[in-house]
Computed example of a mutant assay.
Amino acid sequence: MRTITCLPTMLITALLLFGCKKENDLQIQQGTYKGTFTVTYESGTHTGQTTVELKDERYTCLANANRIPAGGSGKYFFDKKSITFNDENFWTAEFDGGLILNGNYDYTFDGRNLKINRMNEIVTYTYDLKIQ
C-alpha cells in the first residue's frame, strides 16, 4: 500500500523537474533584437539604445556616437551556458574595449527576450534585448 501513495508524489516531482523548459533550453533565434546596453563602472552607470542582428552565425551590433555601446560585428556561437562573439573589426584604443560586443558572455533567452551579460571585478556589461 505504501508504494501506491508514493507514486503520485514521485510523478508530480518528475513533472516539475523535467516538464518545464529552462530559459537556456531554447535556441537563440536568428533575427533583429532591439533594446538597451548598460555598462556599470565603479564611478556610475551609462545606458544607450542598441540593435543586435543575429543571422547565419554572424552578428552586427549598432554603435552610438558616444560608444555606449561601441558596436561590433563578426561571428558568434552559443551553447546552453554562454554566447561568444568574435569581433572582426579594427579598433583604436582611446576607449573601453569592453564596450565592443566581443568575447564570452552569459545569457538568458525565453523565446523573445535575450539578456547578454559579462562582468569582471569592477565593470558589468549588459545587453537587454527583445526580438523584433
Rank of each mutant, 00 (worst) to 15 (best):
M1N: 08
M1R: 07
R2T: 12
T3G: 10
I4D: 13
I4V: 15
L7P: 04
T9G: 12
T9V: 15
T9L: 14
M10H: 12
M10N: 13
I12V: 15
A14L: 14
A14E: 04
L15A: 09
L15C: 09
L15F: 12
L16A: 13
F18P: 00
F18R: 05
G19C: 09
C20R: 07
C20G: 05
C20I: 12
K22C: 08
E23A: 14
E23Q: 15
L26Q: 10
Q27H: 11
I28E: 04
Q29N: 11
Y33S: 11
G35N: 00
G35Y: 00
F37N: 03
T38H: 07
V39L: 06
V39Y: 00
V39M: 07
T40M: 09
T40S: 15
Y41C: 08
S43F: 04
T45K: 14
H46V: 10
H46M: 12
Q49Y: 08
Q49S: 09
T51V: 12
T51N: 01
V52I: 15
E53W: 01
E53S: 15
L54W: 01
K55I: 13
K55D: 13
E57R: 13
E57W: 10
E57H: 14
R58W: 00
Y59S: 00
T60W: 04
T60L: 12
L62E: 15
L62F: 13
A63Q: 10
A63H: 02
A65N: 13
R67M: 09
R67Y: 08
R67N: 11
I68M: 02
I68F: 03
P69V: 06
G72F: 00
G74D: 00
K75R: 12
F77W: 12
F77N: 13
D79W: 03
D79P: 00
D79A: 09
T84F: 02
T84Q: 11
F85S: 05
N86W: 01
D87W: 04
E88Y: 02
E88H: 01
E88K: 11
F90R: 12
W91C: 03
E94W: 10
E94C: 09
F95M: 09
G97D: 10
G97W: 11
G98A: 04
G98N: 06
G98R: 08
G98I: 05
L99K: 11
I100D: 00
N104F: 03
N104M: 10
Y105Q: 06
Y105W: 05
D106M: 11
Y107R: 01
T108C: 04
F109I: 05
F109W: 13
F109E: 02
F109A: 01
D110I: 03
D110Y: 00
G111M: 03
R112P: 00
N113L: 07
L114H: 06
N117F: 03
N117D: 09
R118K: 14
R118M: 03
R118T: 07
R118Q: 08
R118H: 06
M119A: 13
E121L: 07
V123N: 03
T124Y: 05
Y125M: 07
Y125G: 04
L129H: 02
L129N: 02
I131V: 15
Q132T: 13
Q132K: 14
